[in-house]
Amino acid sequence: MKYLYYPGCSLEGTSAEYDISTKVLMEAVDVQLSEIEDWTCCGATAAESQSHLLSYVLPARNLALAEKMNSSNQILVPCSACYLNLKKVEEAIKNDKDLLRKINSVLAQEDLVLKGDVIVRHLLDVLSNDIDIETIKETSQNKLSGLTVAPYYGCQCLRPFTIFDDPEDPHSMDELIRATGAQSFEWDMGAQCCGASNTSTKPEAGMVLVGRILKSAKGADAILTVCPMCQMNLESSQKKISHKEGIDLEIPVLFLPQFLGLAMGKTQNDVRLDLNLSNPGRLIKARV
């Protein structure tokens, strides 16, 4: 299988371990990734506040570059915010030809044209729907049996586009987790907001939301996520929230491909656990 690959800014900075482990995992399941040439920022959360059109043009530029490569009609995107922004353009131009005209009038400055020929796919969508689960089972051989891990989806890979899972009751990670021999933690916080950028702009409010998630994860051996913002929020505030609440809420938080990579025999260095803020602790001991 072949996919175009859009890493996005976070995966080249604060979440480099997500990029590295995704590539390691995709190679292990015989998936070929071709990074979009000359890709740029999707606009993240800042573009919309500056210009409505800009918030479409920035991700549209990357879609146009992908179409120009002509090597696949599907783009694999690990970052949930990037996925949301790119998917927003893909869906919008299907019915809004005036918006497409405006986008292309801007892209023409770089001799780019967006036609709408590519499909944006989240990494979790690809893993849960395109990859043969038996490949993960056979390679893992129950190496992580005895562990219970909490799947955390966050908001942006599930909403507003209900493409591959139910945003109110998501389960797309469950089978992937069980394929490693581990158990999926039963909880109702998997699709609840982690506070997103509120942890920076309104930290007290953000930490309340993060605290609710960490408390609900008590009893799990780790939390798995597929979003750089979620991972950063759930990792970075653990000590502060634990101190405030008077309870130990520290728990390993891994990106899903890190976890699957470990289960499939990759080393800690292969999936760059050293870049995580949380201590993998018991998770690693169970694998030894």
Rank of each mutant, 00 (worst) to 15 (best):
C9G: 06
E12C: 06
S15G: 13
D19Y: 14
I20K: 13
T22N: 10
K23H: 10
V24D: 05
V31N: 03
G43W: 11
A44S: 14
T45P: 04
S49H: 13
S51F: 09
H52P: 06
H52K: 15
S55W: 14
N62Q: 05
L63S: 06
N73P: 01
Q74T: 03
I75W: 07
I75A: 10
L76C: 07
P78E: 10
A81S: 12
K88H: 11
I93Q: 09
K94W: 07
K102H: 12
K102Q: 15
N104H: 10
S105I: 03
D111A: 09
D117W: 07
L123I: 10
L123C: 05
D125T: 00
D125H: 15
S128I: 05
I131V: 11
D132W: 07
I133S: 05
I133Y: 01
E138H: 11
S145Q: 13
Y152W: 07
C157L: 15
T162K: 15
E168Y: 13
E168F: 13
L176P: 03
M189N: 08
Q192S: 10
C193G: 04
C194A: 07
S197H: 04
S200R: 11
A205C: 04
M207D: 03
M207T: 02
M229D: 06
K244A: 14
E250N: 12
L254F: 11
F259E: 04
V271Q: 03
L283H: 02
K285M: 12
R287H: 06
R287F: 01
